[in-house]
Nucleic acid binder design. Structure first.
Lengths: 122, 122, 122, 122
DNA sequence: GTGGTCTAGACCACC
DNA sequence: GTGGTCTAGACCACA
């Protein structure tokens, strides 16, 4: 379910973080359920356990998950607000980038309408 | 006209690239007109000439500017569409992520209005 | 009477130790009276008996309780002064740090009042 | 100026963080001046550069220092408020610990008076 | 030169 | 079993 591109310039632990957040959003990892252990995740992805641990620790600092000593990492509840904040922050950053490139507001609004209209057809 | 934040995690040459593209959009740097020389730009911004050279080189690779040997760098007649496509693609991706997280369309629209309203004051 | 926060970074056995000391101070556990057995304590708190045993063992090493073979653990007649000395030493060290940082005495007094005022409601 | 106890149970990077904060408080590391580089600090203390990097990164997340890419780490200004917050937090934590151990408010107040009265004699 | 990332492998504390 | 810390050493991006 998680794919890592070791050749990408974006750090592996960052890729992991983003994909875990996505999976939490999609409900694959449920509130108060454990994430895969550092070792098993590392083994599955073929990367170093330290790298997984780094991603996990950052997620904990962001309030997305919490540690139970000796048991593992669990998805934090709190209405997923931490996750939402991160997602919104990322979107805002991309939009500011667009504005600074001189992209028209109308262009962006059009894109948004496209994205959310599809949802209405569900 | 160009401001560099040395404390930012965004590389200086990237900041420079983005701001030059913005200035071209605004018409400050006109088609077939020369950009400031590497040395003068570096001096003005108080940064290393190598850094300016790197930004210029990337802009040339993107087709935004072209070199005239012995004369300097000139703004290409290209409509920047290729550069914009990348930026738009990134923004779209972030927005789709937001939608998938269950974030409200209204929330996004509000953010967009915030970002572009500042621009209306120009 | 004892509450354990499994999510806390403070080890469970440490939480247990501190709360037992507090209860002895409050007179809930009286001198030469027995503490709950490892098993019953573990069961009541929903934690591992090994963890309770570890806390009990440390309390014994600190002289807070003593073992009567075959009967259990009893509250020592010690006045806890040795345990308190350690805590006071730690607090004093933190306060000196604060002073050296140029933090105002009033700020500290205010914090103390906040902390102990809650206690007055007991 | 910095001493590390590798045999202590408190992590090396935590010891480093605390001592750096102390040195900033004492004015040894001045605002907008660079900290020793990761490598030189590691060499001087006889520890691994990664460990130093970990301490530095945490300090940055706490807003105590900022990174200038390719240049190094610099002491953040902002009236040292970040540093103060950390120091106060540590003191508060120690005081709560003391209260929970059943230590009297009067005892603490006495300690505070001792500490700050010495200052008046300077 | 600087910090940042990653790996490999060791050891520890906690449960 | 779990996560946390530390080391040794490699490689990269940035200025």
């Amino acid at each position: 379910m998680i794919s890592i591109d070791t050749r990408s310039r974006v750090p592996i632990y960052t890729q992991l973080e983003k994909q875990i957040i996505k999976l939490i959003n999609l409900g694959v990892y449920e509130t108060d359920s454990p994430l895969p252990s550092v070792r098993s995740m590392a083994c599955e992805l073929g990367i170093n356990p330290n790298t997984v641990a780094k991603a996990y620790k950052e997620l904990e600092q962001q309030g997305v998950v919490y540690t139970v000593t000796g048991k593992g990492l669990f998805v934090s509840s709190s209405d997923l607000s931490s996750v939402h904040k991160l997602t919104i922050k990322a979107a805002k950053s991309a939009l500011i980038d667009a504005k600074n490139s001189g992209i028209d507001k109308a262009t962006i609004v059009k894109i948004i309408n496209e994205i959310w209209e599809e949802a209405n057809n569900d």
